[in-house]
């Protein structure tokens, strides 16, 4: 192989070479790739069990090339609990959208986090129900129009509630070891997201790890992909701020370094 043949793009081993059903401009594909890269980086594909949700990523069991379980709507963290209690030696991740995780699955995610189940939760937040055709999600922004909030999400006159911030909510619990939110809106964001996902997977043996991706849904937002990313950057990030909210291991390392110094 000479210099001109150097591969500049390869599939992660943990990703199947199956065309996805995702819409043009959707960032699920990017999120899948980051998860697959993390599994490859840790060399754990052959002992990983992924759990996919109900929603746009319902077919993710086709896209990851590791053992996969399809869960019922919102229950992936409960299914993951069953997996890890039976086989603590396995690596287990759930992959969930905002309707799945923050609405119907709210009890399951809160309690899995509270028990500090050693799992990695990947949460794709695009503020809308994608698969069912663009209904209001628990993360839909105030004023945002969806097919079930046609005049915009109205928490006052229509009692439609406010966007729920999952990382901040989970950050009130004692249990979790890693909680982070990162966007997938630019190349630089994706680069940072790659590190965050790998960090989450690498800390899974310590306990509950959670990564929220701020993503888009061009189809149901009624926007072109680029416009959707710009809108998300402008509007979603102020509601869902980026950052590592908790890293127990880093905090412990820092504390012990300070003690030694």
């Amino acid at each position: 192989m000479d210099a001109n043949d150097t591969a500049v793009f390869t599939y992660p081993r943990s990703l199947s070479r199956t065309p996805t059903h995702y819409c043009p401009g959707c960032l699920h594909g990017v999120a899948h790739r980051l998860v697959a890269e993390a599994i490859d980086a840790l060399g754990v594909r052959e002992k990983t069990v992924g759990i996919c949700p109900v929603g746009c990523s319902v077919l993710a069991y086709k896209y990851f090339d590791c053992d996969m379980i399809e869960a019922s709507h919102g229950r992936a963290p409960a299914v993951a609990t069953g997996v890890k209690r039976a086989r603590p030696d396995l690596v287990c991740f759930t992959y969930q959208g905002d309707g799945d995780l923050a609405s119907i699955g709210m009890a399951e995610i809160i309690h899995a986090a509270n028990r500090n189940e050693p799992i990695t939760v990947i949460f794709y937040n695009n503020a809308i129900y994608g698969m069912t055709g663009g209904q209001m999600a628990p993360t839909t922004l105030v004023g945002m129009k969806t097919s079930t909030s046609p005049t915009g999400r109205d928490p006052i006159d229509r009692g439609a509630g406010y966007p729920i911030r999952m990382v901040e909510l989970l950050n009130t619990l004692e249990g979790p070891v890693y909680l982070a939110r990162q966007s997938l809106l630019s190349s630089a964001d994706i680069f940072r997201a790659r590190r965050v996902v790998q960090r989450a997977f690498s800390l899974q043996s310590k306990g509950f790890t959670f990564v929220e991706f701020v993503g888009t849904c061009p189809t149901n937002w009624g926007m072109a992909p680029v416009e959707a990313r710009e809108w998300a950057q402008k509007r979603m990030i102020e509601v869902f701020p980026i950052g590592v909210f908790r890293d127990r291991e880093a905090e412990a390392a820092k504390a012990s370094a300070a003690k030694e110094a």
């Binding site: 229950r75 409960a78 299914v79 609990t81 069953g82 209690r85 086989r87």
Partner: peptide
């Protein structure tokens, strides 16, 4: 949740 935990444990 309990029945879905059973689903997970049975799946392995």
């Amino acid at each position: 949740a309990a029945s879905n935990m059973c689903y997970g444990a049975a799946a392995v």
